[in-house]
C-alpha cells in the first residue's frame, strides 16, 4: 500500500516537472512534435529507472563502505553518461528507424536534470531498494505524462490568436503554470 501511494505521489502531486522543475529544458525544446515528445519521454523513463537503480547500488555498496560519499555527483553523472551511451549504441543497432528520428537528441538525455535529479533524490530520501525502483518509475512516468499532454496543447497554441509578444515560450510557461495548479491541487 505504501508503495502504491509513493508511486501516485511521484506521478501526480509531486510531479518532477511541475513541482521540482526537473527536466524543463527538454520539455521546452522537445515538445513541438507530439510523436517526438512521447518517444523522448519513453527513453527518459528507461534511462531514469536504470540509472537510479545502478546509482543506488553504487552508492550503498561502493561509496558508503569506502567513505567517499562526497564524490556522489561525479559518480552519478558518469553512470548516467555511460548508460545513455550504451542505449545509443543499442538503439542504433536494433531500432534504426527510431535512431533516425531521435538520434541527435539521445546524447542530450545525459544532461536532462530529471535523470540525475531522481537518482540524487532517492538517496536524499533514504529510500530502500524497492522504494527507489517505484519512485523512479513513478516520477519518470510523470515526466512522460506532462511532456505528452504539453505537446498536444502546444499544437493548439501555435494556431491560437495570441498577442505577438507572448507567442512561443511565454505562453508555454503560463500554460505550464495552469497545469501545475491542477496537478498540485493548490490550496487544498
Amino acid at each position: 500500500m505504501k508503495l502504491v501511494s509513493l508511486f501516485l505521489t511521484a506521478l501526480l502531486t509531486e510531479n518532477i516537472i511541475l513541482t521540482k522543475f526537473l527536466g524543463l529544458c527538454p520539455l521546452m525544446g522537445n515538445s513541438k512534435r507530439e510523436g517526438h515528445a512521447y518517444k523522448m519521454g519513453l527513453l527518459v523513463v528507461l534511462t531514469t529507472v536504470l540509472s537510479s537503480i545502478i546509482c543506488y547500488l553504487f552508492y550503498y555498496h561502493i561509496l558508503v563502505p569506502t567513505e567517499t560519499t562526497h564524490l556522489r555527483t561525479l559518480v552519478f553523472i558518469f553512470t548516467i553518461a555511460s548508460i545513455v551511451g550504451t542505449l545509443e549504441i543499442l538503439i542504433k543497432k536494433y531500432f534504426p528507424s527510431l535512431y533516425k528520428s531521435m538520434g541527435l537528441y539521445i546524447p542530450l538525455i545525459t544532461t536532462n536534470c530529471a535523470v540525475l535529479g531522481v537518482s540524487i533524490l532517492t538517496i536524499d530520501h533514504a529510500f530502500s531498494f524497492l522504494e527507489t525502483f517505484v519512485y523512479a518509475i513513478g516520477s519518470s512516468m510523470g515526466f512522460l505524462l506532462v511532456i505528452y499532454v504539453f505537446s498536444t496543447l502546444r499544437i493548439k497554441m501555435d494556431q491560437a490568436p495570441i498577442l505577438k509578444g507572448f507567442k512561443g515560450t511565454p505562453i508555454a510557461f503560463i500554460t505550464l503554470g495552469i497545469i501545475a495548479l491542477l496537478f498540485t491541487r493548490y490550496g487544498l
Binding site: L18, T19, K20, F21, L163, K164, G165, F166, K167, G168, T169, P170, I171, A172, F173, I174, T175, L176, G177, I178, A180, L181, T184, Y186
Partner: peptide
C-alpha cells in the same frame, strides 16, 4: 512552483 511558471511567462511576455 505554479506561481513560478506564471511569473516567468508574464515577465517573458512583457519583454517580448
Amino acid at each position: 512552483p505554479a506561481g513560478a511558471f506564471l511569473v516567468a511567462g508574464i515577465l517573458l511576455g512583457m519583454i517580448g
